[in-house]
Amino acid sequence: MPRDSTSGYLSPAVPRVFAHRGLAVDAPENTMLAFARAIAAGATYIETDVHASADGVAIIAHDPDLSRVAGRSGRVDQLTAAELGRIDLGHGQFFCTLAQALTSFPDTRFNIDVKSASAVAPTISSITNAGAVHRVLVTSFDERRRSAVARGLPGVASSASASRLLPALVAAKLRIAPLVTWSLRGLVAVQVPEKAAGMRITRPSVIAAFHAAGVEVHVWTINDPARMRSLLELGVDGIVTDRADLALAVVAELN
């Protein structure tokens, strides 16, 4: 079984539903409204992303630029936090800071993907100042970013970067248990698509290998209730989804 996290992040019972960028059915993604909608639906975990503003503030945003979410040119790191806080994202929402999200939703656990090197220090600062180390999981595609944030937040929960996941996945497929455990040392989860590097991750043998190494398996981004149900029945520990409302209903049915 997965190890207990000293941070307390994994203290509730599985399965876990991670609201991917909040619940953005009737709200812009990664906004305070999307987070509030997810929490109102029953979500206790929010998956989100951070970049850094021009003045070194951790900003909730998935993309480095403004084109998709705001319909305008420019980059997050070219504007100050105050300027980003005035950009209309629709439904009366604006870019928010990580600090605002953590302090506004003090009972919610956050899964934070650090998207840029410049976001490392402000992410550490925001989490520390909010006293939120025990209720965040930090991760990044890039191992240098992930490990830098983890070093700055002793005891924080963290999931595998790409360079930590790949050898673990190969070892799991080849049934080399010691290498799986070594590759995932110090982590509490792998957060993965159903397939990666030409391999299906959501095979019972792979899930079992990750569990034997002491980590949970969270799969993204799953929006179909039937597939959610199948994955949970296979033994995955968490579903990352744009439809937390539907996933929570599936979990309730299975329980």
Rank of each mutant, 00 (worst) to 15 (best):
His211Pro: 06
Val206Tyr: 01
Ala208Glu: 09
Leu184Met: 11
Ala209His: 05
Val180Gln: 08
Val215Arg: 04
Leu187Gln: 12
Glu233Leu: 15
Val219Met: 06
His218Tyr: 14
Gly214Trp: 02
Ala197Trp: 03
Glu233Val: 11
Val219Ala: 08
Leu231Lys: 02
Arg229Pro: 04
Gln191Arg: 08
Val215Tyr: 06
Ala213Phe: 02
Ala209Trp: 08
Met228Ser: 10
Pro225Val: 13
Ala212Phe: 13
Ala213Arg: 03
Asn223Leu: 00
Arg229Met: 04
Pro204Thr: 01
Arg185Thr: 15
Val190Cys: 11
Leu187Phe: 11
Thr202Ile: 04
Leu184Tyr: 09
Trp220Ala: 02
Thr221Ser: 08
Arg200Trp: 15
Leu232Tyr: 10
Met228Ile: 04
Ser230Ala: 14
Ala196Trp: 00
Ala197Cys: 04
Thr202Lys: 06
Arg203Ser: 14
Arg200Ile: 14
Arg227Ser: 05
Gly186Asp: 00
Arg185Ala: 15
Ala196Thr: 06
Val190Glu: 08
Gly214Met: 00
His218Ala: 07
Ile201Lys: 10
Ala208Lys: 07
Val206Leu: 08
Val192Phe: 08
Met199Trp: 13
Ile201Trp: 00
Pro225Thr: 12
Met199Tyr: 13
Leu231Thr: 03
Pro225Asp: 07
Val192Tyr: 05
Leu187Val: 10
Arg229Lys: 12
Val190Lys: 04
Val188Trp: 14
Gln191Gly: 05
Leu232Ala: 05
Ala226Phe: 13
Ser230Trp: 13
Ile222Tyr: 06
Ile201Tyr: 07
Ala197Thr: 06
Lys195Val: 14
Val219Phe: 12
Gly214Ala: 05
Leu187Gly: 02
Asp224Asn: 12
Gln191Glu: 11
Thr181Met: 05
Arg203Val: 14
Arg185Ile: 15
Val217Ala: 06
Ala212Met: 13
